[in-house]
Amino acid sequence: MTDAAPSAWTPWTAPEWRTRSLIGPEGRTMDLMLALPRGEASPGGWPLLLALDGDRFFAALAGASAALSQRTEKTGVAPMAVAALAHRPAAGAPEDQRARDFTRSACPDPRLSRPSGGGDAFQRLIADHVLPMLAEAAPLNRARATLFGHSLGGLFVLETLLADPTLFARWVAVSPSLWWSTPSPEIATPDLLIGCGEAEAGRDMRDRIAGWAAAKPDGAILKQAPAADHGSAPFALIPDILRHASGAPA
Rank of each mutant, 00 (worst) to 15 (best):
D3S: 08
D3K: 13
S7K: 09
W17I: 00
T29L: 04
T29R: 15
M30G: 01
D31Q: 14
M33F: 05
A35E: 00
L36W: 00
E40D: 14
A51K: 03
G63F: 01
S65P: 04
A83I: 07
P89R: 11
E95Y: 12
D96A: 15
Q97K: 09
A99W: 12
R100E: 13
T103Y: 11
A106S: 13
L112K: 14
L112T: 10
S113T: 15
P115W: 11
S116W: 07
G118V: 10
A121M: 02
F122V: 00
R124F: 03
L125A: 02
H129A: 14
P132L: 13
L134D: 00
L134W: 02
E136R: 13
A137V: 02
L140I: 14
A145G: 11
A145K: 05
G149N: 08
L152G: 05
L155Q: 01
V157D: 03
P165W: 01
P165K: 10
A169D: 10
A169P: 03
A173W: 10
V174E: 06
S175K: 01
P176N: 06
W180A: 03
T182W: 05
A188H: 02
P190Q: 10
P190M: 06
L193D: 01
G197L: 10
G202S: 14
A213C: 10
A215F: 08
A215Y: 09
G219H: 05
A227M: 09
A228Y: 05
A228I: 04
D229G: 15
G231C: 05
G231H: 06
P234A: 12
P234S: 12
A236G: 12
A236C: 12
I238H: 04
R243C: 02
A248R: 10
P249R: 03
